[in-house]
Design a protein around this nucleic acid. Structure first.
Lengths: 225, 225
DNA sequence: AGCGACGCTGAAGACCCGCTGAAGATCTTG
DNA sequence: CAAGATCTTCAGCGGGTCTTCAGCGTCGCT
């Protein structure tokens, strides 16, 4: 399940990210409204966790702008206090659920799961694409039943592609997700790791799982790998 | 049996912890509501002992938030006085049992046992992974039928891995669970204990049960480890 | 066919991460 | 209080991994 956390308190955001990733969620983080809005449009999420107090663009506005653009994913707002006022406004702007700070981590996870179920996503801990299987929990990968040893970077790239299987993912996206989001180096690193990845999961197997879309990016084939 | 004590009076909490551990319980302690809530979600417990008077978030709220999130474990509330008022409210918020302070230690243990029996049966007491067996109740461990003497820390690390067997667990996760959650020391302690653990349960046995996933964490092998 | 842009890949060195032995601190036990 | 066990810190080692770079291949366009 893909989750976007828009929260300016970096410690809280990082803690949530760690926790949710441990539960098998794929988590991205944005620290302000503008970035959150952009990131939400860039990648498909099941749920967006949205703080109200945000620098740049507050949560209400982010929420209503998303909905105005026909955004479908579930939106869970984090209200600072448990005043009914906040909550009413949150729901008015198109949020599906809200949670008052300070909140329990357990409750958050439960609500996230419920919301995702309601909105219709499933949580793939195991992504299967033809004879290629990617286990996000164990961080292992098999091709044609044979286990494949991947390095951390290689797996991270594969994971990012697997979660968007069938869609073309730009190198910039991969850089942002797998490397630091402010990474300003050469996009060639992605090519190098994709190359290494192919050597392990594609070479010696008939069809190519990782496809190049020239001028755009890469795509993980959904059919028989 | 795993017990979480949420009690702000440190002397009392420590005394209970020592006493219950002597009886064979595995005990964690939290000193305020927020921490208790978080800790409850992080690790599987059979029973949570919850004081009502807590800094940050009182026991009633902790209890109701846990239940709102679908929390299954037994909850035993410690009411300050024996007014029926407190007790009714405790049960209302989802507690299974209550005990008025000051209470007898013997009674507490009896109630805990009863509550665990009532709720229990779901938690795996014995985790078997190939020829490695981890008994969470007895806090013992055998490999290839031979008993292995583990220290407290070693067992705690192994337990944390065993409860998530097959999945990669980050050092940060292990630190949060086995050490204090606000522990800010070097993650090297984990490495040291994993090293010690391996010396006891892996060296001299063919396959490695504890696997390193570089850049991510550790994983306990599910197959014939 | 020719050209330019884009992508691929082998090599090499820097870098990072995890492992481990040792020593001191701390806790437990008799 | 002393002895022993356990825990933590530290530093060095070793090796796998990442990045950079340059050269080459390939694709698409004119």
């Amino acid at each position: 399940m893909r989750v976007l956390i828009v929260e300016d308190e970096r410690r809280l955001a990082a803690a949530l990210q760690r926790g949710l990733e441990a539960e098998g969620f794929a988590v991205d983080v944005a620290h302000d409204g503008i970035t959150g809005l952009r990131q939400a449009g860039r990648s498909p999420y099941d749920v967006v966790v949205l703080d109200i107090m945000l620098p740049g663009l507050n949560g209400y506005r982010v929420c209503s702008m998303l909905r105005a653009g026909g955004y479908q994913a579930g939106i869970l707002m984090l209200t600072a206090k448990d005043g009914e006022w906040d909550e009413a406004e949150a729901l008015d702007t198109g949020a599906d659920d809200f949670l008052s700070k300070p909140f329990s981590y357990v409750v958050l996870v439960a609500r996230l799961r419920a919301l995702a179920r309601r909105v219709g996503g499933r949580q793939p801990r195991l992504v299967c694409l033809g004879d290629l299987a990617v286990d996000l929990g164990a961080r292992t990968c098999t091709r044609a039943g044979r286990p494949v040893r991947l390095t951390a970077r290689e797996f991270a790239v594969l994971e990012h592609l697997a979660l968007r299987a069938g869609d073309v993912v730009s190198k910039r996206d991969i850089l942002d997700a797998v490397w630091d989001e402010h990474y300003d180096g050469d996009a060639n690193v992605v090519e190098v790791h994709v190359s290494a990845l192919r050597r392990k999961i594609d070479t010696a197997y008939g069809r190519a799982a990782v496809q190049t879309v020239r001028g755009v990016g890469y795509r993980l084939a959904v059919d028989g790998g």
